[in-house]
Amino acid sequence: MTNQTTSVLNASASGAGLPAGAGMDAEQQQYLTFNLGEEMFAIGILSIREIIEFGNLTEVPMVPPFIRGVINLRGAVVPVIDLSVRFARPPCEVTKRTCIVIIETVDAEGGQKQQMGIVVDAVSEVLEIPASEIEPPPQFGARIRIDFISGMGKVNGKFVVLLDVNKILSIEEVAVVAAMNRAEEASPA
């Protein structure tokens, strides 16, 4: 955890590469890292509301596969997204360590908040990644749509993909009807 000792001043010199809406505050340096399959990703902790055990999920029929279903989060019905499927990988296998990370996204235009869950194979830890250690996303090679990535964080000499959740979970991206229309356009039938 060498990164944790990095001074706050460095972070203030942040710039491109931070997720949209990232402030200059020190908190934004903190990222939750988690695993999807073999890969490690990270999300800025400001977007994260809580992490819950996987379970009590209700499937919703007739929706694109990246929507795993809905859960009851203290009376609110919250959609749960499978990021693996969203990234065109096989769906998350459910194990004891499988979690749902509840994320609050902010709609770019209306500023409307929306809670959504993402299924992850396992959460590992909260890391501080100073802006100086964040590289812009690569043009290709990440096997993920570029606009889903807010940057590449260097952790212990390895790169972690920092995800732009506001983009990945934006209503335009995840709304069922829109997604199905896209699918219809894509399929020649």
Partner: peptide, 27 residues
């Protein structure tokens, strides 16, 4: 009735969600 919300809005065949006594969500 819990509304479909932005993600599921417009889906045909399901009009909303509800929460059962068990805490499970039903359609």
């Amino acid at each position: 009735i819990r509304p479909l919300g932005a993600v599921f809005s417009g889906i045909e065949g399901i009009s909303g969600f509800t929460i059962l006594g068990t805490g499970q969500v039903a359609l």
